[in-house]
Simulated scan of single mutants.
Amino acid sequence: MRIRVKICCISSHEEAEMAIAAGADALGFVAAMPSGPGPVEDGLIRAMAARVPPPLATFLLTSRMTGPEIADHLDVCGVSTVQVVDHVDPAEWAPIAARHPAVRRVQVIHVEGPEALDLIPRYAAHVHAFLLDSGKPGGTMRELGGTGRTHDWQVSRAFVAASPLPVFLAGGLTPANVGEAIATVRPFGVDLCSGVRTDGQLDAAKLSAFMAAVRAAEGAG
């Protein structure tokens, strides 16, 4: 079982190069968000994505809520994958697919409880993958990722078992806990931001330790 690794919150060409050298399968670029670390302006996202060699994936994390707005965002950023970080109306995926048919589509599911599984049939026909995270999209203080918190991995395990699509696991992953997370949830891939950073900067030692832990978990699986 090979686990894909997505390193998120990439904020510079140097961080992108570090993640690629460490063996990442995908890089995540965070656009403007109501909460969480790591947002960068769209022009820099486009410049960074343009320098990422194939076959690595480049993810735009967008908090825009309508299909036309998200498609406009993709026009600007030039990435291979869009990750919608809020629970949008499923109908909003149609204009994105129509305007950007080659762009892979990922719906974030914020795991607040077992009801997360109810969202599988809501979105499965419209996207290529799910990403499970620890945010709280409802309420006045919306959290759409980057919380540094884990969630109930038993719910995530059940989600993976029920999903017809690949599932990435995010939320509070670190070199110390990613092995347990993989063994418990059995995701297609893992995604993290703060767990490989020191004072907000990508940390080569933590990144190396994380990748080693993922590869060890693959061997154990």
Results as ranks from 00 to 15, higher is better:
residue 2 R to E: 15
residue 2 R to F: 09
residue 3 I to M: 13
residue 4 R to G: 10
residue 5 V to I: 15
residue 9 C to V: 12
residue 9 C to D: 11
residue 11 S to H: 08
residue 14 E to S: 14
residue 15 E to N: 11
residue 15 E to G: 12
residue 16 A to W: 04
residue 17 E to G: 08
residue 18 M to Y: 00
residue 19 A to K: 02
residue 20 I to D: 02
residue 25 D to E: 09
residue 25 D to A: 08
residue 26 A to M: 13
residue 26 A to T: 05
residue 26 A to Y: 07
residue 31 A to Y: 11
residue 32 A to P: 01
residue 32 A to I: 06
residue 35 S to W: 11
residue 36 G to D: 12
residue 36 G to P: 11
residue 36 G to W: 07
residue 39 P to T: 13
residue 39 P to W: 12
residue 39 P to K: 07
residue 40 V to A: 07
residue 40 V to W: 01
residue 42 D to G: 10
residue 47 A to I: 00
residue 49 A to D: 08
residue 49 A to W: 04
residue 51 R to C: 13
residue 53 P to V: 11
residue 54 P to H: 08
residue 54 P to G: 10
residue 56 L to V: 12
residue 57 A to P: 00
residue 59 F to L: 15
residue 62 T to L: 11
residue 62 T to M: 12
residue 63 S to T: 11
residue 64 R to I: 04
residue 66 T to R: 12
residue 67 G to F: 13
residue 71 A to R: 06
residue 73 H to S: 13
residue 73 H to W: 15
residue 74 L to F: 08
residue 74 L to R: 02
residue 74 L to M: 12
residue 74 L to C: 10
residue 74 L to I: 15
residue 75 D to N: 13
residue 75 D to R: 12
residue 77 C to Q: 05
residue 80 S to R: 07
residue 81 T to V: 15
residue 82 V to Q: 02
residue 83 Q to H: 14
residue 83 Q to L: 14
residue 88 V to H: 01
residue 90 P to D: 07
residue 94 A to S: 12
residue 97 A to V: 01
residue 103 V to Q: 06
residue 106 V to P: 04
residue 106 V to L: 13
residue 111 V to A: 02
residue 113 G to M: 07
residue 114 P to N: 10
residue 114 P to F: 13
residue 118 D to P: 01
residue 119 L to W: 14
residue 123 Y to W: 09
residue 124 A to H: 13
residue 126 H to Q: 14
residue 127 V to S: 06
residue 128 H to W: 01
residue 128 H to Y: 01
residue 129 A to Y: 09
residue 129 A to V: 11
residue 129 A to S: 15
residue 130 F to I: 10
residue 132 L to W: 10
residue 133 D to F: 05
residue 134 S to F: 04
residue 135 G to E: 12
residue 138 G to F: 11
residue 138 G to I: 03
residue 140 T to A: 15
residue 145 G to F: 10
residue 146 G to A: 09
residue 146 G to I: 06
residue 149 R to I: 03
residue 155 V to E: 10
residue 156 S to W: 10
residue 157 R to H: 15
residue 161 A to F: 05
residue 162 A to L: 14
residue 162 A to I: 12
residue 165 L to Y: 08
residue 170 A to D: 03
residue 171 G to F: 05
residue 173 L to M: 06
residue 173 L to I: 01
residue 174 T to L: 03
residue 177 N to R: 00
residue 178 V to P: 00
residue 181 A to F: 01
residue 181 A to P: 03
residue 182 I to D: 03
residue 183 A to Y: 03
residue 183 A to P: 02
residue 183 A to N: 03
residue 184 T to P: 04
residue 187 P to F: 06
residue 187 P to H: 06
residue 190 V to K: 01
residue 194 S to R: 06
residue 194 S to V: 04
residue 194 S to Y: 01
residue 199 D to L: 09
residue 199 D to Y: 02
residue 203 D to G: 04
residue 208 S to T: 14
residue 209 A to S: 04
residue 210 F to E: 00
residue 213 A to L: 01
residue 213 A to Y: 00
residue 216 A to W: 00
residue 216 A to M: 02
residue 217 A to W: 03
